[in-house]
């Protein structure tokens, strides 16, 4: 198991390095720079600005300098927000985005697993078709539509819930978490239905039923553990996706998270910010993939045995 983890980590490092290098040179090749504005900047002022941010050095020296800073954990100063470092902006937004992502994931799991399991118990009946059709709608409905729709119904017509903010007014976290979670709930519902259907046709389930166990015990104690493996494998990338993909929800609900910076940095040609967010999020994706591989391996007895056999 340890060797498996070690190899996976070693594989991850070159991936991140390639991401850094590709991002660095790609953003530099885009026309326009961080100090280009609609009102033209006086050449002397532009020179002074470029010197303050090391942009006057040859590109390869800038690259090496950036790698040097990165090795020390310094993502550099933001171009767009003078007086703030990229580290500071990332760490200000991360807890909020992570919290939002976590709630969204909890909601997605509760709704998704319940609906998926429910549907798998009576395949090809109304009990299957109704939740699965809803799941299909959930996958198709983009958050920029669902968010304003929920706001209109629950925030404005019914006036039950606050429509913007994060932790300012009680209940203001509900709508964004539901909006962000719903698409993932739909995926999870489909994954858990498929997983459960496969497991429920296995011999050991028949044995359990033959023993006379009530159906709910068969499902919760025997089938769920195996049936949810595809869901577990999906959770790692899903959480990373929630962190990186919360931009739309964050702007609709005015949430001070990471997503907004991630997207705006590209428009602003905020070089250090683009690099910082990309490196950070790609590391997260690699990390969560690693974690979900390990959890899936641990849940699946056959895989676990393989590691114990091959690893020792």
């Amino acid at each position: 198991m340890l060797r498996f983890m070690f190899i996976r980590i070693l594989q991850a490092l070159p991936v991140i390095f390639v991401v850094i290098t590709a991002t660095f040179f790609l953003v530099r090749s885009a026309p326009g720079g961080p100090f280009d504005q609609e009102k033209v900047v006086i050449p002397e002022v532009k020179q002074a600005l470029e010197a303050q941010y090391r942009l006057d050095l040859p590109l390869h020296e800038q690259y090496l300098a950036y790698l040097g800073d990165l090795a020390q954990g310094d993502l550099g100063p933001s171009f767009k927000y003078p007086g703030r470092s990229v580290n500071e902006i990332l760490f200000a937004g991360l807890p909020v985005t992570a919290e939002l992502g976590l709630y969204a994931l909890i909601i997605a799991l509760c709704i998704g697993v319940t609906a998926g399991v429910f549907a798998s118990l009576k395949p090809n009946t109304a009990q299957d078709y109704v939740p699965m059709s809803l799941a299909m709608i959930g996958i198709c409905m983009p958050s920029f539509l669902l968010g304003p729709l929920l706001v209109l119904v629950f925030g404005i017509w019914l006036d039950w819930l606050p429509i913007t903010g994060w932790g300012d007014i009680p209940g203001d976290k509900i709508l964004p978490a539901v909006t962000l979670g719903s698409a993932y709930a739909a995926y999870i519902a489909r994954l858990s239905r498929a997983g459960m259907l496969e497991i429920l046709s296995q011999d050991y389930i028949r044995t359990a039923r033959a023993k006379g166990l009530p159906e709910w015990r068969v499902v919760t104690q025997h089938a769920l553990r195996g049936g949810l493996i595809p869901v577990i494998a999906f959770l790692g990338p899903a959480f990373a996706g929630l962190l990186a993909g919360s931009f739309v929800v964050e702007t609709i609900f005015q949430i001070p998270g990471l997503g907004r910076f991630y997207v705006q940095a590209a428009f602003n040609r905020d070089y250090t910010m683009i690099l910082g967010t990309t490196v950070f999020l790609s590391s997260l994706i690699v990390f969560f993939n690693l974690v979900s591989d390990i959890v899936a391996a641990w849940l699946n007895p056959r895989l676990r045995q393989q590691f114990q056999g091959g690893g020792s």
Binding site: Y103, I106, I107, C110, I111, V113, T114, V117, F118, L121, G171, K173, I174, A177, P214, E215, W216, V219, T220
Partner: peptide, 20 residues
């Protein structure tokens, strides 16, 4: 029994919402 499962799932959702 399945509705039992469903209602437990539903109460889990309610708990999640209460968290928020």
């Amino acid at each position: 029994n399945t509705s039992h499962l469903f209602s437990s799932g539903f109460s889990a959702i309610c708990c999640a919402l209460l968290l928020l």
